[in-house]
Write a protein that binds this DNA or RNA. Structure first.
Lengths: 106, 106
DNA sequence: TTTTCATATGTGTTATCTTTCATATAAGCT
DNA sequence: AGCTTATATGAAAGATAACACATATGAAAA
């Protein structure tokens, strides 16, 4: 474990600690999508999706590709796949409520 | 990818998206420690460490063990080790600044 | 049982992030 | 060029979390 990893981790996890961004990543694990397709599939406004795609793109959690007027976003499966796998494993084995943890309510 | 994983992930990552909690986990990857030892090693107040240990404990990112007056905390290496490995890999391969990402400043 | 050490909890202020609405940019079509 | 579609950006209000300080609990020793 390198010194200062905490700082790297912090940016990394702050980026992920948001329900809209996680939904975006989850959707993109299925298939690449345009902004409006994402907005519809997660039930959020286009501007919100754009706002949230920005930090995901900056940290290369997602990639972008032009297609006419559209911007097709895809996910970095190596990183995001690994993360989701770790979360699933943790939820199964360690989460007392099997994934329905309550960070605050308990 | 199961439906609703986003919700699980959210709690999970919110828990991690905090510099004090990440420092705690980083320290505990080296060795189990008491609260005061943790406080000293990360340079934070005892009350802050306690506050931050609480959610880590609730989600079983860390474990606790009594030792006289002290409470010795240890880390869930399976989950936290996997996460740190993923972050390191991402920082090396994908982070444009090699781990010194700027979520906001750029 | 009082004192001390170790840790946990409560609270209010400050700082940060989220969200929405309005607007800007940008590409392609007519 | 003007229009339409697609996406990005700005800014302000509202929601949420962090932090520091004070205090409470709890265990052990005297």
């Amino acid at each position: 474990m390198k010194k200062g990893l905490s700082e790297t981790c912090y940016r990394f996890f702050v980026n992920l600690a948001n329900p809209a961004r996680l939904s975006i990543l989850e959707q993109l694990m299925n298939q690449p999508m345009s902004v409006n397709e994402l907005a519809e599939s997660i039930g959020q406004e286009q501007s919100m999706v754009s706002h949230n795609l920005k930090p995901l793109l900056e940290c290369n959690f997602v990639y972008i590709k032009r297609d006419g007027k559209k911007r097709i976003y895809s996910v970095n499966k190596e990183t995001v796949g690994a993360l989701f796998k770790t979360v699933e494993n943790h939820a199964e084995k360690f989460c007392p409520t099997g994934g329905k943890c309550h960070l605050k309510e308990g």
